[in-house]
Amino acid sequence: MANNYVSDRRSQSIESRALKVNTRGETLKIIGKKALPYGLVAPSLVVFIVFMIYPMIYMIYLSFHKWNMLSDKTFIGFSNYTKLFSDPSFLEVVMTTVKFMVGTVSVSVILALILALYLKENTAINKFLQSVIFAPYIVSLVSISFIFMWMMDSDLGLFNYALNLLHLPTVRWLENPNVAIYSLVLVNVWKGVGYYTLIFISAFQSIPPYLYEAAKLDNASKTKTFFKITLPMISPTLFFITLTGIIGGLKVFETINIMTAGANGTNTLVYNLYQYGFQFHKIGYASAMGVILMVIIGILTLFYFNTLSKRVHYR
C-alpha cells in the first residue's frame, strides 16, 4: 500500500511537470526515453514471437483440426485428444518416454556427482581426465549413435564379444523390448555425463574452503560433510541440471531415430510425433501430442520451481 502511494505521488508529480513544460521537444524526448528499451529488445522479441510464440499458438490451433497438410483443415474439437488418451499405444509411448527420462537423468546426475567428487582437485592428471570425460559431449549425437549401434550389435558387436570372452550370456541390446530403451539411456548418459561432471566440479570449487575447515574442526565425518555442506551448497546447480536433464530427456529424438527407429519398445513422444506428423500425414493428431508434451514439460517446470526450488540453498 505504502509503495503504491509513493509511486502514485511520484507519477502525479512527473505528470504535472510534463503538463507544465509540454513543449514538443520535451514530450518527444520522454517518448523516446520510454521507447528506447522496447526498441532495443525488439529484434530478439520479434524473433521470439515469430519462431516460438506463433508456432506454439499455431500448434494449439492445429491440434483441434484434422489436416494432412494438403487437404482443407476440418475443425474436430477435442477429438484428437480423446483419441490420444484412449489409445493404449500412446500411453505406452508416454511410459517409454518417462522411463527414458528418469533413467537418463538419475544415472547421469548420480554418476556425474561421483565423478566430480573424484575429480574436483585441480591436479594435472585430473585436468586431463576432465577433458577426456568431457570429450563425448562435443561429438555429434548422430555419430555417437552410429558407433554405439555397431558396438551393441547382437551378432558382431563389441559389447557381446566382451561378454562372450567373460563367458557371460549375451544381450540383444537394441532388439529386446525390455532392454532396448535402457541401451539408449546408456548412450545418452555416456554423452552427457562429462558435461554434468564439469558443471559439478566448478560448483564444488566455488564452495568456500572455510566451511570445510570448520567441519574438520568439529570432527565431522566425510559423509556428514557431504550431505550437510557440499550438497546444500551445490543445490542450485543440482536443481538446474536436473531440470534441463528432464526437459532434454522428454524431448529425445536423434538417438531413437538412428538406433531403433522407434521399434522394440523405444518409441518416445517426440519420435512418435514426428512419425504421425510427417510419415502418416496426421498433422492435427501430431499437434495434439505436441500440446500434451508442452503441458507435461510446463507442469514439471512449475512443480519444480514451486516445490523443489524452495529447498534450494541460494547464496
Binding site: 507519477s11 502525479q12 517518448i31 520510454k34 522496447y38 526498441g39 525488439a42 522479441l45 514471437i49
Partner: peptide
Amino acid sequence: MNIQFKKTISALLIMTTMLLGIT
C-alpha cells in the same frame, strides 16, 4: 497509476508498429 497505464499503452503501440512492420 496514470503513467504506468501510459507506459503499457506506449509499449503496446510500439509492439503493434513492430508487428505491422513484420506483416
